[in-house]
Computed example of a mutant assay.
Amino acid sequence: MPEISITRARTMIRKAIQKGHELELKPLSVVVLDAGGHVKAFEREDGAAPGRFAIAQGKAYGAIMLGMAGTAQMARAEAQGYFMNAVNGLFGGQVIPVPGGVLVRDKRGVVIGAVGVTGDSSDNDAICAAFGIEAANLVSEI
């Protein structure tokens, strides 16, 4: 099974944070999960709240476990809140169904992980995650 190397995970984090600086966003926290939902790498910028790890992880974890990015999860939660509530119960409340949880695909389209970004608006978080993923020469699904 293809996986995200630590070098690519670090690139994704560095570039996501760089994009946040370019956009003059609030301090970001970025996590990279592998295809099994396990943490590959994480970084929290100076000034970011300490609880941001759990939020970033929840955004990325939902993307991996459901096979759908945060934007699609949010649409599903709005249309079928009962479904997302049930799913979140199954996963111990670890799913945060909002933009900022972005699937990582290889060039063949295989999901190999997810990036979760938090710290600014969910839409801005998703932009930064996608930028980091694409900077690592992988494909993002917002």
Rank of each mutant, 00 (worst) to 15 (best):
A75C: 01
G58T: 04
A69E: 14
A75L: 08
T71P: 05
A75N: 08
E78H: 15
R76W: 15
Q57A: 07
E78R: 15
Q57I: 11
E78Y: 04
R76V: 06
M84D: 06
M68V: 11
A63P: 00
K59P: 02
Y61A: 12
F83G: 01
G70P: 00
A69R: 04
A72M: 09
Y61L: 06
Q73K: 01
A86L: 09
A79S: 15
G70T: 06
G67S: 03
A79K: 14
G70A: 05
G58R: 02
M68T: 10
A86K: 13
A72D: 10
N85K: 05
Q80R: 12
G70M: 08
G70D: 08
G67E: 00
A75V: 08
Q80Y: 08
K59S: 01
A72K: 14
E78I: 04
A72N: 12
Y61C: 06
M68E: 11
M74F: 14
A86C: 11
Y82D: 15
A60M: 00
A77K: 15
Y61E: 12
F83L: 13
G62A: 01
A75D: 07
K59H: 03
Q80D: 10
A75W: 15
A60D: 09
A86V: 07
G58M: 07
M74L: 10
A86H: 08
Q57F: 11
T71M: 14
M68F: 10
M65H: 06
T71V: 11
M65Y: 10
F83T: 13
T71S: 13
Q80M: 05
Y61D: 02
A72Y: 04
Y61P: 04
M68Y: 15
A72W: 07
Q80N: 13
G70I: 05
I64P: 02
A69S: 14
Q57W: 10
A60V: 00
G62K: 00
A79D: 09
M68I: 08
G62M: 04
A69Q: 08
E78M: 13
T71N: 05
A69N: 15
A63R: 03
Q73H: 06
Q57C: 00
K59Q: 03
A86W: 12
F83E: 12
Y61I: 06
L66C: 02
M65F: 08
L66K: 10
T71A: 15
A77L: 15
Q57Y: 13
I64Q: 01
Q57L: 04
A75Q: 01
